[in-house]
Write a protein that binds this DNA or RNA. Sequence first.
RNA 1: GACCCUAUCGUCCAGAGGUCUAGGACACUCCCCUUUCACGGGAGUAACACGGGUUCGAAUCCCGUUAGGGUCACCA
Length: 439
Amino acid sequence: MSTRVRFAPSPTGYLHVGGARTALFNWLFARHTGGKLILRIEDTDKARNTPEAVQAIYDGLNWLGIDWDEGPLKGGDHGPYFQSERDAIYQKYFDILVASGRIYEDHGTMRFKTYRGNTTVEDVICGNVTFDMSNPVTNPDMTIRRPDGGWIFHFVNVVDDIEMKMTHVIRGEDHLSNSPKHVQLYEALGAKPPLFGHIPLILNKDGSKMSKRDQGASVQSYIEGGYAPEAVINYLCLLGWSPKDNREKLDLSEITPLFELENVNRRNAHFDLDKCFWLNGQYLAQMSLARFRDLSLPFIQKAGIVIDDEEKLLEALAIVKEKIKHLGDVPDWISYFFTDAYPYDEASVEKTLKKPGALDNLQALREAYANVSTWDAATLENSLKETAAARGVKTGELIHPARVAASGRSVGPSLYHLLEVLGKTKVLDRFATTVTRFS
RNA sequence: GACCCUAUCGUCCAGAGGUCUAGGACACUCCCCUUUCACGGGAGUAACACGGGUUCGAAUCCCGUUAGGGUCACCA
């Protein structure tokens, strides 16, 4: 039998990293087992759901590259995939429950009588967990329908998992204590419960619960923050799972064949943005220039940099690619290639240009560069070193002013490559402008 | 409070009774490379929560304690 799993988020306005990881583990399980991943939107709480919130889920999953086989925008044989549109189905199952005698009314709500005995949840990750359901205080009868006729999570969740023929339910560990109740619902409905896989939660680095506002909590923050989706995916996979051979950087095609639900850890993971950041740098440095360009473009446009020369853009990106850890840094690192109105970093000006002799050195370098026969990094390096030697100063005395004069800043790509890409005319102009401006 | 899950460096992950004087990664410190920044290379600091068992032998198995997390909604 082919496996079927689902990601069933509630549209709350954003996609939480924990939810993203749940989706990811479901995706990995489906792909690994050759099964299907279903997306189902759990929007039974009318008061809280908006179309924008649903869109945030699509956007987050799309960005991460997590695709689904059945669900909204995709269709399938088990729809509709919005719970708000499945009322007739719920009514049908509700009638079965009523007929079983397990339903009673309480202040207008409909409640499901809990069976007061041991109930076992078969869990692939946690092992079989048996709950003693005899205490009505800890395990009260579940409310499954509101006075206004609206359905409640526990019921619709189980009904849909039956109707959509789920073989496994992979979800956050926060649901583990709910699961025995769900198992009872399956049994009352005459269905065999699926196999569960409760994955540990993601907490903040200090162990506190991750809330909406915490750093790195929403997928949107990675999109806006300059992360490559493959880096975030990779990091998320490493939270609670590992390839067992100490590899850190792996892509989905490498992870999929290795991913076994049984090997998912049981302990909560503390989120470490530093490592995600590092991984991002690794991905940026190693990805193709074409992809780096595509990922950088939105940030370049947002910064208002006008690119009139695609060749120049690729040249500029090529020399900064391996040094950048964050796509959000791209504009600052390349703006001076495309405009002469780049800002001068105050601290760098103070430290290098205002240094005695700096402008004289710069002027000398300009003269040397005006006379070079070829304009490439190697030539520029040699020329700079010769100039330094001739003047009896360290090369650093020329490097620093040259960098600030050419780019306005003291950090960036290799100076000689920077100058090569910038071009002879601009370099000579900027050296001259700088000498005049700071004399 | 009751019930459930968990417990290896600050963090993530290896370790499924002897190969562990516990390995890798991030972060941090130092050194080398580069007379920028960074990358890269090398080194270092740093952990089996505690107490009992079981066993010839335990990070690994069992029990307890402690700690953290979760659930106990007309939220999902």
